[in-house]
Design a protein around this nucleic acid. Structure first.
Lengths: 151, 151
DNA sequence: AACAGCGTGCAACTGAGTTGCAATATAAAT
DNA sequence: ATTTATATTGCAACTCAGTTGCACGCTGTT
């Protein structure tokens, strides 16, 4: 993400009351350039204040439900979260590494045409589109260095 | 999947030796119209012969590595597997239900153009493309009937 | 003060997937 | 055919992400 959106403003716009935990969690996610795991968020947030993992998961669920965050799954590892702000971080595809699970954002790729092409293909009601390229990232490929994982 | 590809032929083509467990597992997956979970595969396979879950996971890993199966993640529940036969089940997008995790195949949608559009956007090496629509399926939406889950 | 309602923390749990290792089966070599 | 190497399986125990139940505490309301 390039520009940082203000966590407080995002919550206000989506009708979610701010509080210390929510502020902090959103700030951690907003200030990362990639989609992040709960583990990463927890580690980063705990440098500021003590938070239980259950609290984190509950806040993440709330944010996803209120469309403040986008949640994504990948074959390697846990779910990842990114800011869902239409102006500062519009919907985009990702590259996902099969080894370490790291996610690269392919920003500046618009998916609205793909979305339209697909919507008519199902009787169900698509709410989101999730497009991922999968492979092994540069960090992992040279020597198959297992799990360089995020700190 | 429309036409059924022959498990034995698939394995032969991809250089994997057949054996009773592999045959059975591949048959179960090939005869399903949707991408299936390990749990589903295990239940179905055990109607024929007793198989340990570890064996299943190992065979699934082997099949994915040898490109006999495609593996997909979704935000709801576990990984899902489908036959990766280019003729009988070419790469296609999916609709995934957020409630029950069920995956509908959007066959007859070709993704090669999307793929090309994206390949140049990353310095990494994309091997696969995975496109999913997310939402709540018809079975789940009417009364938010939790977890109708597959039998 | 007594109550409701929400947010949090702790502990214990669930469920998917993994690892180590011993037992078995299969294929190759003598 | 018996031995020897190699691949496959099963069991038990484990890891790790995410969840649930419940008690506690902090608002704000009557």
């Amino acid at each position: 993400m390039k520009t940082l959106c203000d966590p407080r403003e995002l919550m206000a716009r989506q009708g979610v009351d701010p509080n210390p935990n929510r502020d902090l969690i959103l700030k951690v996610i907003a200030s990362s350039s990639k989609a992040v795991t709960p583990k990463f968020i927890l580690t980063a947030a705990r440098k500021t204040r003590s938070i239980d993992k259950v609290t984190l998961y509950r806040i993440l669920d709330l944010f996803v439900a209120r469309r403040i965050l986008r949640r994504m799954a990948s074959v390697a590892g846990s779910l990842r979260y990114e800011i869902a702000c239409a102006e500062h971080n519009p919907l985009h595809p990702h590259f996902v590494c099969r080894e370490c699970g790291d996610m690269e954002c392919l920003s500046d790729v618009d998916l609205s045409d793909v979305r339209e092409r697909l919507n008519m293909k199902t009787k169900n009601l698509p709410e989101d589109i999730d497009l991922k390229l999968e492979g092994v990232c540069q960090k992992c490929s040279p020597r198959k260095r297992r799990r360089h994982e995020e700190k």
